[in-house]
Design a protein around this nucleic acid. Structure first.
Lengths: 148, 148
DNA sequence: CCAGAATTTCCCACAATCCCCCACAAGATC
DNA sequence: GATCTTGTGGGGGATTGTGGGAAATTCTGG
């Protein structure tokens, strides 16, 4: 299970150094094969390849001509890229994906259970601000009974 | 059951010395494994790992594309970190979490039954002010018939 | 189709950071 | 007043993050 938020820096070549504590889990779960793609909320998704597979299948099974499912497919499948960690435990984020999520130097890697999300510093901050703005109306379907 | 509020100091490295009277209970309940994460009210949560598990499971089961449940997940799962007490009974609060809750040197550890809350001194003070402000209108859902 | 050049990919080395452990000081207890 | 427990700080080794350089590959132009 991936969890925890880490502030990272993209280097001049657009490489992201995965924190050492996540490397083992990530490489083990995906036999070294990872997938990066775009998320509708304007961040990126990072999956171990086996975890991505069924999600892609589910998206491809949705009706082609339905406008919204086509949107999801164009994003999630259209932007997906296979990547691997280099010898120093970094992964290269392609220019298209960097541009999509607005990634500059400072980024955030956020554990989300079976996958990670990658945010620009500004996007991640905006996300937190949004949470405070929503306040106590924050009880979506499925979590009405959440007891912390 | 954890209860009681204690004022503590973070040292220069961001470590929090857990009061000795809570250590045994905390270590026993979690077999030494603890989880710290972010709370929407801008404080931190400290759970023994087994108590955290079902909460995480419930959050991860909520739909990903639904904006509010995605926010909840980004906060609670995204910030969650496994921690352990060091040899001196302290636990290290990561920079991300310290920044989120605005923790400076002076902090408060507040028992909340199955878990603790960790507040910045200013946040804890603001919380009390808010309670006084609500004053005699304090009749939350589910507690209308509370008999003290 | 070949040659040159730019880009990409891989790898190595250094520097900074983190983490663990030990030692001391302050307070509580008997 | 002495001893034990609790809280605090610091030092040093191991690990991690970052940058740069060289080789290989791809693309373009001749």
């Amino acid at each position: 299970m991936f969890q925890g938020a880490a502030a990272l820096n993209l280097d001049a070549k657009g490489r992201m150094a995965v924190p050492a504590r996540h490397r083992d889990a990530l490489v083990t779960a995906g036999e070294g094969r990872l997938v990066v793609t775009a998320h509708p909320h304007r961040c990126l998704l990072l999956y171990p390849q086996p975890a991505w597979e069924p999600i892609r299948a589910q998206i491809l099974a949705a009706p082609s001509l339905q406008v919204e499912s086509a949107m999801v497919r164009r994003l999630l499948v259209g932007f997906a890229e296979d990547v691997e960690l280099d010898g120093a435990g970094r992964l290269l984020i392609s220019p298209s994906l960097r541009q999509y999520a607005g990634l500059e130097k400072e980024i955030w890697l956020v554990g989300q259970g079976r996958h990670f999300e990658i945010w620009s510093a500004t996007g991640w901050q905006a996300q937190q601000d949004a949470i405070f703005a929503v306040g106590d109306k924050l009880l979506p379907p499925g979590l009405e009974n959440l007891a912390l």
